[in-house]
Design a protein around this nucleic acid. Structure first.
Lengths: 113, 113
DNA sequence: CCTATAGTTAGGTAAATACCTAACTATAGG
DNA sequence: CCTATAGTTAGGTATTTACCTAACTATAGG
């Protein structure tokens, strides 16, 4: 790995984990659901065709990535989305887009020379 | 998995692969490099501390995801970034943000009730 | 107190990932 | 033609992932 060394980026709470979390369709489904509002673990599990423990595992990954926060009250754990992590991913992408545009401009200048 | 069934999204060329590709720091480094302009395989490999075949493997993944295109002329393979795949990822995220804003508005309405 | 509900833990399997070395192919250029 | 360069293929290993079942804990509510 050695990400920071290689990819001169600001370190922060791991883009790796955010993108990794978003790479799975079930986890994206969870994020999509939570984007409409908070939900309990079993509400999140219901549309997913898999056993509860598997859902839990996905949730753990989502929490580790920072995309999701949760808190337990009584016997119910309520999960919410955390926009900060999503922002991070979006900003990484949009920085790439800027770099591409700059490259494109340089190409234009070159052709005009 | 069963992504589409579960996550009502439009299908298109796999968001799974795009996010998966972006989840690795070496691959992001490659994308960052290519965002500044095209490069050969060995140019891409140079800053990464790993053997060439490993770089190749990352490149294959990047091509499979649609993030990178490449073509060989002579003995040199030139790689370029493909903005479409990046757009897809960005749009998925921004759709989530919209959903979050709508949810937030509904909450406001509710509090006003 | 008792039972159903909500979530959690333990532990196991199959497949995918991220690397590596060694050996090979193809082309540029003297 | 020969050699150095650019990339590729084959094949192997350690780790991580995405699931599962079975068994457990904790709390709501009658």
């Amino acid at each position: 790995m050695n990400a920071a060394a290689v990819a001169g980026g600001q370190v922060g709470p791991s883009l790796d984990l955010v993108f990794q979390a978003l790479a799975d369709p079930s986890r994206r489904a969870i994020v999509e659901r939570l984007a409409r509002g908070p939900a309990s673990v079993s509400e999140l599990a219901q549309p997913l065709e898999m056993a509860l423990p598997s859902v839990l595992q996905h949730l753990q990954l989502l929490e580790a990535s920072g995309l999701v926060r949760s808190a337990k009250t009584g016997r119910v754990r309520t999960c919410r989305i955390n926009s900060t992590a999503l922002d991070q991913a979006e900003r990484w992408i949009s920085r790439r887009r800027s770099a591409m545009e700059r490259a494109f401009d340089r190409l234009g200048d070159f052709l005009k020379e």
